[in-house]
Design a protein around this nucleic acid. Structure first.
Lengths: 153, 153
DNA sequence: TATTTAATAGAAAATAAAACTATAAATTAG
DNA sequence: CTAATTTATAGTTTTATTTTCTATTAAATA
């Protein structure tokens, strides 16, 4: 695993907030040459510390303004059934995140759709169409208070 | 609100998956000229459909390999107390996401830290240091099955 | 002490973004 | 219905950025 020095960490913080900055801008902020920044970025990409660069969209402007957390319990927990469930859940475009978790339920899904009607549709025709689903429990998002992809290093 | 045509939607999908593609690459995939792509991207940025461009990191490589969902109930729900809680929760670097939600609890926090010890520390010295917190209930992530920032348009 | 390695800087070359000009199709106004 | 305007596009030129190459310095190693 790559050892990160303070400059790497600062660089990663900058890139997490705005990946469209030029190397020149970054070099000014970090007091480095353009080449030094370039080499560091390439190294961080090559080592997999930087996974990818993406555009983040405004959910409201693309008509996806309804979010829910859906807790799911399976009926069977043998490896075969778990693998099958996970393979199916990954395919569902409405599911942005899926975690295998501790506690009362087996999985938590973060689901994003247009509205409640679309959520009902998702539950009835997509989620519960997957075999092996026992119980589900939906929690609806009233307001997004904080949402960042930037990890403090 | 900007009306998106099919080309805009395809462009947004491409940018959500890889924002480092050149306009030339995008123009090939969309069967457009470089200028046409350039103009569309600028329009989408200006209208706020594209919120920002960010680098996504590999959590494991930066020693943040412990995630939990923390459900929080407040003791008081008047506007004054809610605002105060939200203002404090936003400041906490370990909290990547915070949602005001329906159901038994008032908020769900997505918390990312190094390990269980760091989580305990977060709970004891940061979260419960905020006044007005009643109950909390932590759900630990055993495995991340799916995680995308890309919204299907 | 000599040699290698790692990190950096500066210059040059290659590439891409941005700005500009022009054209055609669609929309609007008279 | 026709002229004017707007919108979306393409091609060209200019500007800026990325990438490569060469060189230097400091630290680590033999």
């Amino acid at each position: 695993m790559l050892k990160l020095d303070q400059t790497d960490k600062e660089l990663l913080t900058l890139l997490q907030n705005d990946s469209k900055q030029t190397n020149k801008e970054l070099s000014n902020k970090l007091n480095l040459s353009v080449t030094a920044v370039y080499e560091r970025v390439k190294k961080l990409e090559k080592e997999g510390v930087v996974k990818r660069y993406v555009a983040l969209l405004n959910r409201k402007q693309i008509e996806k303004n309804f979010m829910a957390h859906c807790h799911v319990r399976l009926t069977q927990h043998s490896k075969e059934f778990v693998v099958k469930f996970e393979r199916e859940i990954i395919k569902l475009e409405e599911v942005l995140e899926c975690y295998h978790v501790s506690g009362d339920y087996d999985y938590i899904l973060k689901v994003l759709v247009k509205d409640m009607e679309a959520y009902r549709d998702f539950m009835v025709t997509k989620l519960t169409a997957i075999p092996n689903i026992g119980n589900t429990h939906s929690i609806f998002v009233i307001d997004e208070v904080k949402h960042t992809t930037s990890i403090n290093i």
